[in-house]
Amino acid sequence: MPNKTIYVSDEDLPVFQRAQELAGGKLSTAISVALRRYVEMEEGRQEGYDEIIVKVGQGTGQKKRFSGVLLGEWGRTQGSRVEMFKVYRSRQGRYVLHLDRSPDWTDNSGAENWLEGLFSRGTWRTYLGLTDSTWGFIQGEATLDVVDTFEELRGKIPDEFYDLIADLANRPAVEDLDI
Results as ranks from 00 to 15, higher is better:
141 E>T: 07
95 Y>F: 15
121 R>I: 14
43 E>K: 09
52 I>H: 03
39 V>A: 10
10 D>W: 05
34 A>I: 12
80 S>A: 15
83 E>P: 00
78 Q>F: 07
156 K>S: 11
77 T>G: 00
32 S>I: 08
174 V>G: 00
2 P>H: 01
123 T>W: 11
59 G>H: 10
74 W>I: 08
115 L>H: 01
26 K>E: 09
129 G>N: 00
93 G>Y: 03
73 E>A: 03
8 V>M: 13
132 D>E: 09
143 T>Y: 09
90 S>W: 04
35 L>P: 03
50 D>P: 04
137 F>A: 13
41 M>I: 08
5 T>E: 12
83 E>N: 08
40 E>Y: 10
148 D>N: 14
141 E>P: 00
144 L>M: 13
86 K>A: 10
111 A>F: 12
14 P>H: 07
53 I>F: 01
52 I>P: 01
165 I>C: 04
74 W>P: 11
28 S>E: 03
113 N>C: 06
18 R>E: 14
44 G>C: 01
131 T>W: 03
7 Y>N: 13
159 D>C: 04
159 D>P: 11
5 T>P: 00
60 T>H: 05
12 D>M: 12
31 I>S: 01
160 E>S: 05
46 Q>H: 04
21 E>N: 02
122 G>V: 06
151 E>C: 05
111 A>G: 11
38 Y>W: 13
146 V>G: 03
1 M>G: 09
31 I>F: 00
145 D>W: 07
78 Q>P: 02
24 G>P: 08
46 Q>A: 07
79 G>R: 14
100 D>A: 15
139 Q>C: 09
105 W>P: 00
101 R>K: 13
145 D>Q: 12
137 F>L: 09
18 R>Y: 06
19 A>K: 07
17 Q>S: 08
135 W>C: 10
31 I>K: 01
20 Q>A: 08
106 T>R: 13
65 R>P: 06
134 T>R: 15
112 E>R: 12
28 S>C: 02
33 V>A: 05
179 I>S: 03
160 E>R: 01
157 I>L: 14
137 F>H: 11
56 V>Q: 03
161 F>L: 05
160 E>M: 04
56 V>K: 04
56 V>H: 01
129 G>M: 02
60 T>Q: 07
7 Y>H: 13
159 D>W: 10
155 G>S: 11
6 I>A: 04
82 V>K: 09
101 R>M: 15
28 S>M: 03
149 T>D: 12
179 I>H: 04
32 S>Y: 07
152 E>G: 04
114 W>H: 03
173 A>C: 04
124 W>T: 07
102 S>C: 01
153 L>Q: 10
39 V>N: 04
130 L>H: 04
65 R>S: 15
83 E>A: 11
76 R>C: 14
15 V>E: 12
18 R>S: 09
160 E>Q: 09
121 R>L: 15
152 E>V: 07
177 L>M: 07
175 E>K: 10
106 T>F: 15
113 N>Q: 02
60 T>Y: 07
94 R>A: 11
37 R>D: 12
175 E>H: 00
130 L>G: 02
122 G>M: 02
